[in-house]
Computed example of a mutant assay.
Amino acid sequence: MTLTELRYIVALQQTQHFGKAAEKCFVSQPTLSVAIKKLEDELNVALFERSRNQVRATPLGEQIIKQAQVVLEQSHLINELANAGKDPLGSKLSIGAIFTIGPYLFPHFVPKLQKNAPAMPLYIEENYTAVLREKLRQGTLDVIVIALPFAEPDVVTQALYEEPFVVLLAKDHPLTKSKTINPRQLEKEQVLLLGEGHCFRDQVLDACPGLRKNIHQGNQTLQSVVEGSSLETLKYMVASGLGITVLPASAAKLADNNALVTRPFTNNAPQRTVALAWRASFPRHKAVDVLSQTIRQCKLGSAVKA
């Protein structure tokens, strides 16, 4: 068996479709199909059940594919060890960030990192926490920037800064008369939220439990909760008078001040802790240190002591 064949069966398990798995592995579908059949013949087991409309792993196949993922992670570690031995700041670093952090961090962070580590090429990606978690485990990403809590076996986290939440309002909204906003004041407003899958949505609902209650009860006597695909979409919707929203402070700083205003929450304002996460086995400690220091230099929130 080869590492390539192991990549193929992992991709097929993830996509449950030969065509999509082949596309993910950048090969033709016949190439992938033949390689997987060859591996099954070598092992003398069926790894997948095949039907016209579905492909899924057999019980034994699931166990083998799980072990294949471990082997691929370990093979990636060999490359990382070799690169770290050459120059920890001289080889590519792959960084991921959740959607509600990336757009507001990367424009400040990338130029500073290029000055702090000019010989280190970067790959950056924005995605959901769940996707970044999987890519970190697979070795596709080296380090990710997420909001705590974040728990994953064999993954190290380091808190970087605390970022408060603020309420974003159109400049003529009645709530602009208040210097601070109590979460209960949002319960009768048209509140714009990110869609499900965004951890920031859950953080807002935790900070404003009345909104979560309204969603669960489907209370029609209150204004509905409208969902958006990004914080930028929500900002435009607020500017158009469609409602109000809650943003992390870094996202609110870039709002159009001619049409929008922000208000802080009352005492004990909700906030999030932004952190780095990387595999405990990742050998390029110096690269992580430079990354951490550079993000802190961006001053997007109150720094957490290292």
Rank of each mutant, 00 (worst) to 15 (best):
R137S: 06
R50W: 09
E232C: 09
S75N: 14
Y236Q: 15
P118T: 08
F109G: 05
G96T: 07
A117K: 08
Q190H: 08
I95W: 10
T180R: 13
I65E: 00
G96P: 01
L39A: 04
E73D: 06
N268Y: 11
H108I: 00
A22T: 14
R50H: 07
R50F: 13
V166E: 07
Q271M: 00
F150M: 05
V290A: 12
I124D: 02
R50D: 08
H76Y: 01
N214K: 11
D289K: 12
V55A: 07
A259D: 13
F150E: 03
P30S: 02
L148Y: 05
N127W: 07
T221N: 13
A249T: 02
K92H: 02
N79Q: 11
Q16P: 03
A21F: 02
V304H: 03
K188E: 14
N214D: 11
Q185A: 04
A147W: 02
I124H: 04
K171E: 00
A117H: 15
D256W: 08
A68D: 09
I64L: 10
S240Y: 10
S75Y: 08
G218D: 03
E187T: 14
E126Y: 10
L160C: 05
Q297H: 04
E126N: 11
G19C: 03
G102F: 05
K112M: 12
V191T: 09
P111G: 13
P88R: 04
N214S: 09
I124G: 03
A68W: 04
V166Q: 02
P149F: 02
N79S: 11
V45F: 06
Q297S: 12
E163L: 12
P30V: 03
L193N: 00
E23Y: 00
V274C: 10
L113Y: 02
G61R: 14
V167M: 10
E227L: 15
R7M: 00
V45A: 03
N257D: 07
H285E: 13
